[in-house]
């Protein structure tokens, strides 16, 4: 991990600069091929950029953006809270884990979007529906990661706590939770991505407002550059969310080997 990054940094200045260079090259190729009419209905990046500016300038972007962000944030919060609350008992009790593992494996392989018809029947095409779908798509990631985390308590650490007669609640606080935290952080990062994907997809499919419905509306109205502008915005949201959670994780888990500033 580190050596690869160093290698890249040594040859290309910094990894960020190298990545931006790749993006720039791709944009140029896109501009040339689309400009020559080789990509059919795909507009040039310049046209997409103009459409992007336009939706911001007219203010049309804010309401759908808000709907998408709200659906995403609420579903993520629910998935994290429920996932942790359900995952911990399953991870700390061998029996509960054995009894539930089959059900969990079955439920988590159901793609959230196949539940669209059912959820729409029950809750209509509002925000609740996208929240429920995103929650159902993402909660498993948090549950599974919490289970893995709770099961990973080091036997020597546990014996240390036992020999010092550390109280039950302190054992939860200072052993179980810190052990599970890196796993939960991964679960949250996965859930954040899943929630965003399912929220936007559900908004397109149902349609249920937000950026998703704007993509559909733009396509139906023949406003192809605007459609791409919204698609681009969805991508940017995903990248931003991932970076934000990565930063948060590095801060909360500064002690963890993958975030340490000092080698052991």
């Amino acid at each position: 991990m580190v050596p690869a990054r160093r290698l890249l940094a040594g040859r290309w200045g910094s990894p960020l600069a190298a990545q931006l260079a790749v993006v720039a090259v791709l944009l140029v190729i896109w501009q040339i091929t689309a400009g020559l009419g080789q990509l059919g209905a795909v507009p040039t990046p310049v046209e997409v950029g103009r459409a992007l500016l336009a939706i911001f300038a007219s203010g049309a972007v804010w309401e759908p953006l808000g709907t998408t962000l709200a659906g995403w944030a609420i579903s993520l919060l629910l998935a994290v809270v429920v996932g942790i609350v359900v995952g911990f008992p399953l991870g700390t009790s061998r029996l509960a884990y054995r009894l539930s593992v089959f059900t969990l494996d079955f439920l988590r392989t159901i793609p959230a979007l196949v539940l669209v018809p059912l959820v729409v029947l029950l809750y209509g095409s509002g925000l609740e529906s996208t929240i429920l779908l995103a929650f159902l798509g993402a909660v498993w990631a948090v549950i599974m990661q919490t289970i893995y985390g709770a099961r990973d308590v080091d036997p020597t650490a546990l014996q240390t706590f036992m020999s010092f007669r550390v109280r039950r609640w302190d054992t939860v606080r200072f052993l179980l939770v810190p052990t599970a935290l890196p796993y939960i952080a991964t679960g949250v990062r996965l859930a954040a991505a899943i929630c965003l994907l399912v929220t936007i997809s559900a908004q397109v499919v149902i349609p249920a407002g937000g950026l998703g419905e704007q993509i559909l509306t733009a396509q139906l109205g023949g406003a192809v550059p605007t459609m791409y502008a919204y698609i681009f915005l969805c991508g940017a949201l995903g990248v931003g969310a991932n970076a934000a959670f990565g930063k948060l994780e590095a801060k909360a888990l500064a002690w963890h080997p993958s975030h340490r500033k000092v080698a052991a």
Binding site: D154, T156, A157, Q159, T160, S163, F164, R165, V166, R167, D170, F174, L175, P178, L181, W255, H256, P257, A264
Partner: peptide, 28 residues
């Protein structure tokens, strides 16, 4: 009775500073 384990790297909690590690058994 207190036990000192062979594997100090797993007996000390990496998420707690040394002072907090030492304080942990005193909390009760």
């Amino acid at each position: 009775v207190s036990v000192v384990f062979q594997d100090y790297s797993r007996s000390l909690m990496p998420w707690m500073r040394v002072g907090k590690n030492i304080e942990l058994p005193l909390r009760r």
